[in-house]
Structures are given as structure tokens and as C-alpha cells.
Design a protein around this nucleic acid. Sequence first.
DNA 1: CTAATATGCAACCGGTAGGTTGCCTATGTC
DNA 2: GACATAGGCAACCTACCGGTTGCATATTAG
Lengths: 107, 107
Amino acid sequence: MTGKRRSPARVFAALGDATRLALVKKLSRGQPLSITQLTEGCKLSRQAITKHLRVLEGAGIVHSVREGRESRFELDPEPIVSIRKYLDHVSEQWDQVLGRLKAFVEN
Amino acid sequence: MTGKRRSPARVFAALGDATRLALVKKLSRGQPLSITQLTEGCKLSRQAITKHLRVLEGAGIVHSVREGRESRFELDPEPIVSIRKYLDHVSEQWDQVLGRLKAFVEN
DNA sequence: CTAATATGCAACCGGTAGGTTGCCTATGTC
DNA sequence: GACATAGGCAACCTACCGGTTGCATATTAG
């Protein structure tokens, strides 16, 4: 049942936190980073960061690969692309409304 | 201090709930809807829906206009467009990485 | 005026999100 | 082997979220 895992709401919720957005930003550079590397510069404890990473992982935004004694996290862009399309759909519907409104005003 | 109000995290968080996404969907048709209208068909109590609407309003996704005894809610697409751009930026960075990787593999 | 409708306000409740701390394990280094 | 480093696990705490209920207020209908 992966259906629920990556529901749009789940993905949005995962991105709905400044700390997590910062993690995504760091990882969007493409280089896999370890937990301690991701913790550096970020006031919070390593455990807190780990929890945030698990949330991102649960939404499918990120995945980890254990390498020796450290586990590297890497971005997984599919869910992000997915909700982008979701937003596109909403905006599109809205644009159609604007279009109709504009047409109405002009006639 | 409207700066914090519509921070990307705030907007994502507002969309990070199935009920709220459903409300946005209903409102994306363009027609302003009253609270009772938005509650119809939605198991939850009117008060619950009201709270969700206030969250969306806090993120700037929606605004209400009092009209007689009912308050109509309407979609406000700006924050959605804004986070769409945000996601575009992340995807773009990622695409650049893929591009570099592709180039590396091909050479 | 009275009744019905639409909403607001506030208290209350259970669950969980976010964070810390302490300790244990595994891996790498000297 | 001894030590340092990277991470996992679990308990614990506070605050907030999502939801309900009860009651008060404003508007509209008859």
C-alpha cells in the first residue's frame, strides 16, 4: 500500500516545516549527505534532524543508503514533481475561471 | 509582519492535510462558497471546517467576505503560484545535477 | 415578533509533532 | 585493543492540531 504513503497531503505536510525545507534545499545540490553533515550549522540536535529525515523519507522525498558507519541521504524528486503537477492542475482551473471572468467583463 | 505569514513552509503546511486539500479543490472552481456549503458532504462538523478554513486563510490561500449572515470563501491563488515557483527552483537544481551526471556518463 | 439559519467563541480532549537526553551498537583509526 | 566517530533506540516532555460540544449572536424568513 504505497498509495497512502505518497499522497499529495503527505508530501505537502512533509514540506510544511522550515527545517525540512532547509534539508531539501541542502540535498537539492545533488550530493548525498550524511546525517552529521546535514546537522552541521543547524542549531538542532542530531536526533531532531534524524526525525525530520524520517518524515521526508516517509513521504518518499528522500532515501538513505547506509555506507560504512554513516548513512547518506539523497533527494528523490519524483514526489516533488508529482505535487508540482497537482498545483499546476489547481492553477489551471483557476486560470480558466479568470479567463471566463475576463471574457465576461469584456463583453 | 506579513513576511512570516506566507512563508513557503506555512503554505505547504496548510496544504498538508487531506481535508484542506479537498476545500481548496472545491474552491478552485472559482465560485465563492459559504461555510455550510463547504461543510456539505464532508462528515466533519462545521466548526472543524471553519478551523481548517482559518488555517488556509492564515497562509493566504483563501480569504473570506462576509455577506449578510454568511461568509463566503474564495481562493487566493498567489501563494500557490509562489510555492509552485519554489518547487520549480528545486526541480531545476536537480535537473542540472542530472544534466551533469548525464554528461559525465556520456563522456 | 418568532423561528430558523449561518456563523462565532470558548472550553475541552486525545493524539501526535518536534525536540531533548541518555545510553547502546557499529564502524573506522591509532 | 583502545578510542573516536556515526548512527539507532527509547523515554520523556511540551505544545499544538484536529475534532467535538455547548452556547451566544446576527441575519433572514414567515
